[in-house]
């Protein structure tokens, strides 16, 4: 399922390209996250997380990664970052919080690294 335009490319370290195979893998997960544009759906998820994941047909791995709020795992399971941000937003995590989480550093370290990039 590697796309013609990506075939034979060397992997980019620390990066997953959201291509067709990822889009297939993550379709249900991303569809659930898309529903979180609506406040009533965010509330319904908070009230009954398992029931909500059932409704969208998430597989066991995706369900576990949702439980762990593990963005890196969710990305590997086909999640797209813009959609995952709608999920993590429910828990009050913004793009910098999940950036730090994925990079495996504290929020302060993550912000410091970005500030340092501005000084070079």
């Amino acid at each position: 399922m590697t796309m013609r335009s990506l075939k034979g490319k060397r992997p980019i370290p620390g990066t997953i390209i959201f291509d067709g195979s990822q889009a297939i893998r993550g379709y249900q997960l991303n569809k659930m996250c898309y529903s979180f544009n609506k406040a009533e759906n965010r509330d319904a998820f908070l009230k009954d997380e398992d029931g909500y994941c059932d409704k969208y047909g998430l597989n066991d791995d995706q369900r576990a990664a949702v439980k762990e709020r593990d963005v890196l795992k969710l990305l590997g399971l086909g999640g797209n970052i813009y959609y995952l941000a709608k999920l993590t937003g429910i828990f009050g995590l913004n793009m910098q919080d999940i950036g730090a989480q994925q990079a495996g550093v504290s929020l302060e370290e993550f912000k410091a690294k970005l500030l340092a990039a501005g000084e070079t």
């Binding site: 990066t15 890196l72 793009m95 990079a103 970005l114």
Partner: peptide
């Protein structure tokens, strides 16, 4: 870069 372990990557 918003996603992956390389999140926070920029290239001045």
């Amino acid at each position: 870069q918003l996603d992956g372990q390389r999140a926070g990557h920029t290239n001045r």
